[in-house]
């Protein structure tokens, strides 16, 4: 009898402690995501909805702006995530050397960008890449270019600036994860390899990288999810321009809902494209990592 009273009090307490979080998540996450699913089958402007079946999905396939946003987002993903993760891995490996001079300084310096707010660094980058700005001045002085580049008004260079900006902001963040993981690797493995005459690059490639695989997977998943939702930087640097060259899916959803005459149903359909992409890409990355392990 006493036992069951205790068990009951445990059960009640267990629920009491998790309940505030579950109620909030239910109202502000589960309910909205289901509502969004319902909305994605509705057509109409503003708050007037009518059932449209697959009309929104049809509209997606014929909407050049959506296709543009989708291909831009995929391009950012394919270019930016690998560049950033390779850089982060390289810096982490260099900084993991205890004989390296100025280790603390380099680590702090490279980590520093991820302390900035996305808004602050975006506007700073905007001024650096102004047409007569410091980036062009420097490149001109170094004779790397002959004429100033119109960074933010040229479709190609605007993308380069966006990719550069995100890489600047997040490389140090990923580096910290790799450094932490590297410090957990048993030093004696490296000693043994060194005695066997394995060169440094091979030690990195055949010992460090395989042992870091879970962390690399983890960082690539969170970077993928982050880049798929890219909004702050493009909205502040280019507003998606020039002529939609840097328009991302998140920015398009925002435009559809809050900048143009609201088309919430269609915007919800676009948002589900991101949900599906996040799901698929996370799955692929997990399968790839599992495969390599076997």
């Amino acid at each position: 009898m006493a036992q069951s009273a205790l068990a009951r009090s445990e059960r009640i307490n267990g629920w009491l402690f998790v309940m505030p979080a579950l109620v909030l998540l239910g109202i502000f996450m589960v309910y909205p995501i289901l509502w969004s699913l319902w909305m994605s089958f509705q057509v109409g402007r503003g708050m007037n909805f009518s059932f449209g079946g697959t009309a929104n999905i049809m509209r997606l396939t014929q909407d050049p702006v959506f296709l543009r946003a989708l291909s831009n987002t995929m391009l950012f993903l394919a270019m930016q995530v690998p560049i950033m993760l390779v850089l982060a891995l390289f810096f982490a490996n260099a900084l993991n050397d205890s004989k390296l001079w100025g280790r603390g300084f380099f680590r702090t310096a490279i980590f520093l960008p991820c302390v900035t707010s996305l808004v602050a660094y975006s506007v700073i980058f905007k001024s650096i890449f102004a047409i007569d700005g410091i980036a062009n001045q420097t490149l001109l002085v170094l004779h790397l270019i002959e004429n100033p580049i119109n960074w933010l008004s040229d479709p190609f260079w605007a993308r380069v600036v966006v990719i550069t900006a995100i890489t600047w902001r997040w490389t140090g963040y990923n580096m910290i994860f790799y450094l932490a993981a590297m410090q957990n690797i048993d030093r004696s493995i490296y000693e043994a390899a060194r005695i066997d005459g394995v060169p440094a690059w091979a030690r990195f490639w055949f010992i460090t990288v395989p042992l870091l695989k879970p962390v690399i997977l983890f960082t690539s998943v969170i970077s993928t999810i982050g880049t798929l939702q890219l909004f702050d930087e493009v909205n502040l640097l280019t507003q998606g321009g020039p002529s939609d060259a840097t328009l991302t899916l998140s920015l398009y959803i925002y435009n559809l809902s809050f900048r143009f005459m609201p088309s919430f149903g269609y915007a919800a359909t676009v948002s589900y494209v991101i949900v599906i992409l996040v799901g698929i890409l996370s799955l692929i990355q997990f399968i790839v990592a599992k495969d390599r392990r076997a």
């Binding site: 995501i33 509502w35 969004s36 708050m47 959803i253 919800a268 948002s271």
Partner: peptide
């Protein structure tokens, strides 16, 4: 599982809520 729900998919229904 819900960790991977992107905010982009929540912002419209949240706004309407």
């Amino acid at each position: 599982l819900m960790l991977s729900i992107p905010f982009a998919a929540l912002m419209i229904p949240l706004f309407m809520l």
